[in-house]
Amino acid sequence: MIARVVLRIVAWAVMAYLILPLVVIVGASLTATSYLAFPPQGLTLAWYGRMLADTSYVAAFGTSTALALAATAGAVLLALPAALAIARHDFPGKRTLLSLLMSPLVLPHVVLGAALLQYCAALGLMRSFAALLVGHVVIVTPFVLRSVLPQLTPEQRALEEASADLGAGPFETFLLVVLPQIRGGLTSGAIFAFISSWINVELSIFNTTAELTTIPVKLFNYVQYTIDPVIAAVSSITIAVAAVTIVLLDLTVGLHVLSNRR
């Protein structure tokens, strides 16, 4: 019984620890003082107005969003055929290929970022949107692959064969039979891919410039020199984006993590 009480206390303390910094950022973004204060002293939305008036923030939000959307689309286009090939065919070197496609998950992003800077410089793409995009596609593809692969089961395969037997063409079968069945995995993989690209600093930082920059990189460069409530306001917006993304994930495929149902 004592063990249970201790467990409960530890669990709630850890939950509080997880949420505290986010509450502090949102709180500090509302302060009426010109320096960061938590608890906020007075309430104002002035810092959000300052942020919107600064076109460089608006541009960085635009770049981040375009980059994350393009990287997610690229990752889906690469991971989907790869998952089909891996689930359907026993070709030699399958395990090696899967390891190659999954390895960006454990590879230090700083190392990959440095590698892409050097490589894209040689290709004449240094510090361009294309250089950012290829790196982001590489790091987010594993998320889509990881969530689609388990859904391509033998049962799913049988339905696909039935569809072909009934005279459906391969394209029709893919669209009407395969896609609806793997929609859940594809959606959650794509959402994870989007958010991983949207929040990335360590890869992007190598290929961004003062003009072409994503919101996390801009924040990183700013925070190292100045800390003010505008930064807290920008950060709060990214927290809101995270919250919206989670709600989307919950509404589309549901949050099945940690649930006892298998």
Binding site: L18, I19, I25, N200, I215
Partner: peptide, 10 residues
């Protein structure tokens, strides 16, 4: 998930 979906920098 909320912190997990928020940037390291934030």
């Amino acid at each position: 998930l909320l912190p997990l979906f928020t940037s390291n920098i934030v």
